[in-house]
């Protein structure tokens, strides 16, 4: 593999460039996926049947914790990518590990939130609204879960092989994925929670 040193390592080989472009296109598909979920959410939001509405079940505290944790993790992974670019393997691994820990925290709070919903009678099968709410949140949560496993694998690989064009590429793509989840969350926060609570 030829390595072009004029570019950042993650872009350094032809295959790396293909991977990154491919991932951007994948994110385009993901935007459509979440876009469809949002469109369905807005269509079904008032169709609560005999179940509760958003205003009745949303609680600000866990949502704020989730938001802060996830935003911070997005910032930390940015630091991780910076560390990677200047070749500091240890710092990079540390930042990635912190990112994953924050992600784990987010997931924990979200699981608590879900259990709370089910507990107060807003389970998946209650109404069209609860179904789309939990599916939208759940799809995001599943993405985060997947990201945790994926990120963990990447840390293992960086530890083993150091920062190579291959691991740098994977780590960079993972960071794109993580930022994307953050952006999706911002939409969820604004249009599901804030709008629902107002």
């Amino acid at each position: 593999m030829k390595i072009d040193h004029s570019l950042p390592l993650e872009y350094g080989t032809d295959q790396n460039q293909l991977n990154i472009l491919g991932f951007w296109i994948f994110l385009g598909a993901e935007i459509m996926l979440f876009g469809t979920l949002f469109a369905s959410y807005f269509t079904l939001v008032d169709r609560t049947g005999s179940g509760p509405s958003g205003a009745e079940i949303f609680e600000i505290t866990p949502v704020l914790i989730e938001t802060i944790v996830l935003l911070t993790s997005s910032f930390v992974i940015g630091l991780g990518v910076h560390a990677m670019r200047i070749g500091r393997t240890k710092a990079m691994i540390t930042f990635y590990a912190i990112t994953l820990l924050l992600g784990l925290t987010f997931l924990g709070v979200e699981i608590y939130e879900f259990m709370h919903y089910v507990h107060i009678g807003a389970g998946l099968q209650v109404s069209a609204f609860t179904a789309i709410l939990l599916t939208t949140l759940g799809t995001h949560g599943a993405h985060v879960t997947f990201g945790l496993v994926w990120g963990f694998f990447i840390i293992l690989q960086v530890r083993k092989h150091g920062i190579t064009p291959e691991t740098a590429n994977k780590s960079f793509i993972f960071s794109l994925y993580w930022h994307f989840l953050d952006v999706v969350w911002i939409f969820i926060f604004s249009f599901v929670y804030l709008k629902g609570m107002m």
């Binding site: 935007i31 876009g35 469809t36 949002f38 469109a39 807005f42 269509t43």
Partner: peptide, 9 residues
């Protein structure tokens, strides 16, 4: 209508 605007996003 809703989806129409969602598509534009």
């Amino acid at each position: 209508h809703t989806e129409h605007s969602a598509m534009a996003e």
